[in-house]
Design a binder for these strands. Structure first.
Length: 880
RNA sequence: GCGAGCGUGGCGAAACCGGUAGACGCAGCGGACUUAAAAUCCGUUCGCCGCAAGGCGGUGCGGGUUCAAGUCCCGCCGCUCGCACCA
């Protein structure tokens, strides 16, 4: 009689045995002589509290790859750590009076235990947390090195300011232009901020994308667009008229009343369609006028309330104000245009000033229509007539032929751009220029729970770096988070910031800004190569051995910022002498962006979110367990704590086991797409686990070894068919894992199990074929369900761990398909099937197809015009 | 608003480089076993017409290219992600 598979005993047993045998450990380069290395990494988690099954997908995918590589003889590095600085810890501190440090470390302890339950093959000896001084000490050293190498500077930047809470707001803390806690309208303030010179590498960050062949095209495209290299022109517009209040200044000094306004455009060809100039609200000229013109001042104020989020600014209705300045058209001194301030002009791109050419740009058109500014079209779309073509509500932004444009008339868009630039250069009114959308990275945060910036402000010496011997600059722990004492706790700490200047020994203050948490995650993958190094961020040799990360797995939401910053950091670390490799500066050789786990959301009668386990289905309706009241079933959304649509990992593993969770999140949906967590899916995975175990146990004897010769009866009839299928499964699953088609690998495993169950009989051949297939099955599922696979492996008399056994190799002869089924189409519609030997000659196949009775019926009365034979695939007969 | 992606049965999906649409799983239906249920096993399941053989239609919508389109091109619709201080 077969016993039920008991995951509660089996799973912890194997985890203990793996740990005792050190299966999870990465070998040192010396120990691993002769082995290839594989560095597999999942984006490390923020320790937000507890792990739910949604998180597990990302780590399971990485684990499948890590285990697969281990089985294929690689020296595998698969580490885990914590992205432990950040806002939620401070929010928890404010809301619940807990210290961010205690909250964070408690969460880490809980989540570590949960992750261990999953049976991930992780080298826990390399665990790190970015909030440890032992980690951020080295980050401060990197900051100082970047500073020394001219990759760090200070600059004024706009921030969202909450005037009630007296604090800087993150974009996500601005809701409808108001602070999320105070509800006060947001103001924009300028603060002196620390910047990383990412743009120093703009050209290389762009060019190198082409070589990242194992990154998804969509991510490369998003990065390309983000970097946004564009060719265009700067144009200088002479001022014809300016308000008299703009103060005059001596020659040679900047003067808003006299200096031309510089504009950047990618479309100088549309200059004759210019209707106005528009400046950003924080353009120097706009600001200078606002000092004397209340209407312009109000305009700036209104813009400030939009916050700093580009999405919010661009979604807002367009508005502007006439600045009272008039400029001359570069191609016609008598043509005078108005200068406006406009909310849709971004100060962070180009020169913060544009010329509006309404017929050729939708935003310019909307603006011109709103303020009744006259304009005319200058680009004629292909196929349109100049006499009748009109632009009213829809701008034409594509290429066409120039008209209404004097010397540019008749030229194509492309030629006209060149001609216009040539003319601008001749008139000394402009020049060709390359523009980037990419900006330098502002890393200052006015927050407590982050890495302190190692700088000192001295009244005499200015801003001075902290000497390296004084690192780490550690966060003080005695801080308060009272709601009524707002601002940065570091800044208001009574003693922490007071120090002496390392240069003049005079009284000085520490920098109280901390680093953006994106900095923490920009180099952690390098630290993992040598996580316990006390004297340096990491050893050069170890980093060169392990880097780049061979397989990086994470959410597509990081497609731009995190990945770009990490690419910048690797280059910067290399150029500052920390890294020898990878020479191309690319940290991640292969990238996979996985989909999320989504789940239905539930709301009680009172409108409160409910956990799935707080509800049940009764008579086809979902009800609240506690009250019996009706539950409103909401949208299927990404599992998140706030909507409570989460399934906690501990409880699930207790009920069903880690293997069921792992199998489920990889089944059904392709890894890059979202997967919905459902009870029926769990049931399916559970049933599969039981079935594999039942079949293995029922077999009741050791499986043949790889080197054993099959008895002749195993190569006949059904036994032979099972052997073929098993060896084809090896080929397929191996390919599927290589290409991240985990859901297909799962389907192949089902097919194999179905075939094993189907083969009856206890003769020598059947026993051999079944034993062999079960052994192969245990190996093929071992990266997905490692605990079950070990138990089966042991039952089948396998030596050692299945986790360290060499990956099975398909017998090419058994896996080969000698006969193929070819569909025969007549005029593209399938009419028959024929069987033909693989690689059969085209003429033979053609003949077979034409002679087929069913085909002949369709060819009666028509002439065969053409017969297309695609070898081993299809035959299509064209006839009429 | 801008940039990117996705859309296939009742449901999750598969389909390699343009070559049999629906593998595999879930759910359903029919049956076997059983006092009964659960579990298990066997069969069946895209729609329409047909006793059947078979035929016709079908991959969000509308066009196009091709001997052949889920796959390529153009235009829509819907959803998801990112937009620089969430991580």
């Amino acid at each position: 009689m077969s016993s039920r598979y008991n995951h509660r005993e089996v799973e912890p047993k194997w985890r203990e045995r793996w740990a005792a045998a050190g299966v999870d450990r990465a070998l040192s380069p010396d120990e691993a002589k002769g082995k290839k290395k594989a560095y597999v990494l999942e984006m490390f988690p923020y320790p937000s509290g507890r792990i739910h099954v949604g998180h597990s997908r990302n780590y399971t995918m990485g684990d499948v790859i890590a285990r697969f590589r281990r089985s294929n003889g690689y020296n595998v590095l698969h580490p885990m750590g914590w992205d432990a600085f950040g806002l939620p810890a401070e929010n928890a501190a404010m809301e619940r009076g807990i210290h961010p440090k205690g909250w964070t470390y408690d969460n880490i302890a809980a989540m570590r235990e949960q992750l261990k339950l999953l049976g991930l093959m992780i080298d826990w000896s390399r665990e790190l947390a970015t909030c440890d001084a032992s980690y951020y000490k080295h980050q401060q050293a990197l900051f100082l090195a970047f500073w020394k190498n001219d990759l760090v500077y200070r600059k004024k930047q706009k921030v969202n300011w909450d005037p009630v809470d007296n604090t800087v707001l993150a974009n996500e803390q601005v809701v409808d232009g108001k602070g999320w806690r105070s509800g006060a309208p947001v103001e924009t303030r300028e603060l002196e901020q620390w910047m990383f010179k990412v743009t120093a590498y703009a050209e290389d960050l762009l060019a190198a994308l082409e070589k990242l062949e194992k990154w998804p095209d969509k991510v490369r495209l998003m990065q390309t667009n983000w970097i946004g290299k564009s060719q265009g022109a700067k144009i200088w517009w002479d001022i014809a008229e300016a308000p008299s209040f703009l103060p005059p200044s001596p020659a040679g000094e900047p003067n808003h009343a006299r200096d031309p306004v510089e504009v950047y455009t990618t479309r100088p060809d549309t200059l004759f369609g210019a209707s106005f100039l528009a400046l950003a609200p924080d353009h120097p000229l706009t600001k200078a006028i606002a000092e004397h013109n209340p209407e312009v001042a109000r305009f700036i104020e209104q813009c400030a309330q939009l916050g700093t989020s580009e999405a919010d600014i661009e979604k807002a209705p367009k508005f502007g104000v006439d600045l009272g300045v008039r400029v001359r058209h570069p191609f016609d001194p008598d043509w005078i245009l108005p200068v406006w301030g406009a909310n849709f002009v971004l100060s962070t791109y180009g020169t913060g000033a544009i010329f509006g050419s309404p017929a050729g740009d939708q935003r310019d058109l909307d603006f011109a229509n709103k303020y009744k500014l006259p304009f005319k079209p200058v680009v004629l779309p292909p196929g349109e007539n100049a006499a009748t073509y009109k632009v009213e509500k829809d701008a034409f932004t594509d290429d066409g032929t120039l008209y209404n444009s004097k010397f540019l008339d008749g030229l194509s868009t492309r030629d006209a751009i060149k001609a216009a630039v040539t003319e601008l250069v001749k008139l000394k009114a402009g020049e060709a220029t390359t523009q980037w959308r990419l900006r330098d990275w502002g890393v200052s945060r006015q927050r407590y729970w982050g890495c302190p910036i190692p700088a000192i402000h001295c009244a005499k010496c200015g801003v001075v770096p902290v000497p390296e011997k004084d690192l780490p600059i550690a966060l003080p722990e005695d801080v308060t988070f009272d709601k009524d004492k707002p601002g940065n706790p570091l800044d208001r700490h009574p003693t922490w910031k007071h120090t002496t200047c390392p240069q003049c020994d005079g009284a000085a203050t520490r920098e109280t800004d901390t680093l953006d948490t994106f900095v923490d995650s920009s180099w952690y993958f390098a630290r993992f190569t040598d996580p316990n190094n006390k004297g340096a961020p990491f050893d050069k040799k170890l980093a060169s051995y392990w880097l780049p990360v061979d397989q990086y797995v994470g959410g597509v939401e990081h497609a731009v910022l995190h990945l770009l910053y990490a690419r910048f950091f690797t280059r910067a670390m290399r150029d500052c002498g920390f890294l020898d490799g990878p020479a191309d500066g690319e940290p991640f050789k292969s990238l996979f962006t996985q989909g999320m786990v989504v789940h239905e959301t539930y709301k009680s009668a009172t409108g409160a979110w409910l956990l799935p386990e707080e509800t049940d289905v009764k008579d086809g309706k979902r009800v609240e367990l506690k009250s019996g009241g009706a539950v409103e079933v909401g949208a299927i959304e990404k599992m998140s704590k706030s909507k409570k649509n989460v399934v906690d990992l501990d409880a699930f593993v207790t009920d069903f086991g880690a293997d069921v969770a792992r199998w489920f999140v990889l089944s059904d949906s392709p890894p890059e797409r979202d997967v919905e967590w459902t009870a029926s899916g769990v049931k399916g995975a559970w049933g599969f686990v039981q079935r594999v175990w039942t079949l293995t146990e029922a077999h009741g004897r050791a499986a043949p070894k790889v080197e054993d010769t099959a008895p002749p009866s195993a190569n006949e009839g059904e036994a032979h068919a099972l052997r073929q299928l098993a060896h084809r499964a090896i080929e397929s699953v191996t390919e599927d894992i290589e290409h991240f088609r985990f859901n297909v690998a799962v389907a192949r495993s089902y097919e194999l199990v179905n075939a094993i169950a189907k083969l009856k009989g206890d003769d020598e051949g059947a026993v051999f074929a079944r034993g062999e297939a079960l052994r192969i099955l245990a190996q093929l599922i071992s990266p997905f369900m490692p605990h079950l696979a070990e138990e089966c492996w042991e039952k089948l008399g396998g030596e050692g761990f299945v986790a360290t056994a060499p990956w099975p190799v398909a017998d090419a002869q058994l896996a080969a398909r000698n006969v193929v089924t070819l569909p025969i189409q007549v005029n593209g519609k399938k009419r028959a099937e024929i069987e033909a030997p693989k690689g059969a000659a085209e003429a033979d196949v053609r003949e077979l197809a034409l002679q087929h009775a069913a085909v002949k019926a369709f060819l009666e009365g028509v002439t065969v015009r053409k017969v297309i034979v695609v070898a081993d695939r299809i035959v299509n007969i064209v006839a009429n």
